[in-house]
Simulated scan of single mutants.
Amino acid sequence: MNPPAAPLPVGPVAPRLRLRAVRASDYDRVYAWHVAAFKTHIEQIWNWNEDWQQRDFAALFAAVPPRIVIYEGTAVGYIQIQARANDLHLVNIALDEQVRGLGLGGRLIGMLQARAAANDQGVTLKVFKSNSRAEALYSRLGFLRCGQTAAHHRMQWLQSMIS
């Protein structure tokens, strides 16, 4: 097996879509995308505690620096990937509401799958049980449920599952 792949590189993903490294000045905007994407689901499960969310987000932002998603020259979201020995783990993906449904998430995840396949790895993720729209996307992209927690479905994609 090859060594773990690096997190998604900066640069082009598809026409009009690229990734760039996060900057310290992006923090507030990335947190706003996080809130917009996940607050409704978190409120349903645990209730939203702003102080706790701020601390947890800050720790994850430092531990797994996101890539900023740029579409047609505008920052529209972020993606966080954690490289592991046997897989790439999609920690978070959040896109502006205005660009959801344009296929950007699918393109980003497709790039992640290609990167994982090139390194003989799988891709894993957790999706809130209440987020049926995201789970439907992951299913269309070849992810299968492989477990659950009280709040999440665990999903995985393995190249061997589609071979």
Results as ranks from 00 to 15, higher is better:
A5I: 09
G103D: 06
I42C: 03
T40H: 09
A116F: 13
Q121F: 10
R67G: 00
D56Q: 13
M111S: 10
Q82E: 15
E97Y: 08
V127W: 01
Q159V: 12
W33R: 00
Y78I: 02
W33Y: 14
V69D: 02
Q82G: 03
A94H: 01
G106L: 05
N119P: 00
R67F: 06
S132G: 05
Q148M: 10
M111F: 12
A36V: 06
V76S: 01
A5L: 15
R100I: 05
S160P: 08
D120F: 11
Y138L: 06
L95C: 02
D26N: 03
L95D: 03
Q156N: 12
A85W: 02
R100H: 00
W157N: 06
L8G: 05
D51S: 13
A136E: 08
M161E: 12
R140F: 06
V64T: 12
I162C: 11
N86R: 13
G11D: 08
W33V: 00
L137S: 09
D87V: 03
R20D: 03
T74K: 10
Q80W: 03
I81E: 07
Y71D: 14
Q80A: 10
P15A: 12
L88K: 01
A136G: 14
A116G: 04
Q113N: 08
A58F: 09
W33L: 00
A59K: 14
R133I: 14
Q98D: 11
L158C: 09
R145V: 15
G73W: 03
L19F: 04
F143Y: 07
D96V: 05
I93M: 09
G103W: 09
L102V: 05
L60E: 15
F128W: 11
D96N: 06
M1I: 06
R23A: 09
F57P: 06
I70T: 09
S139F: 10
A24Q: 10
I70G: 03
K129T: 05
G110F: 05
N47G: 13
D120V: 04
E135P: 00
A94D: 08
L144A: 13
V91L: 07
D51Q: 14
A134W: 01
A58L: 14
A6W: 07
M155P: 04
V76I: 12
G77V: 03
R84G: 14
A5R: 07
P4T: 02
K129S: 00
T40D: 11
A94P: 01
V22E: 04
P15D: 09
D56K: 15
A116E: 11
A150R: 14
H41W: 01
R55I: 12
A21W: 02
H153L: 11
K126P: 00
C146W: 03
G106P: 05
Q53S: 10
R29H: 04
A151K: 11
R133K: 13
Y27K: 04
G11V: 10
Q121K: 14
H34V: 02
T149I: 06
H152I: 00
A5D: 02
V30W: 09
F128T: 02
L88I: 02
I45V: 14
V35T: 15
K126S: 10
M155I: 13
G105W: 13
L17F: 01
A37L: 08
G110C: 08
Q82T: 10
W46V: 06
Q53D: 07
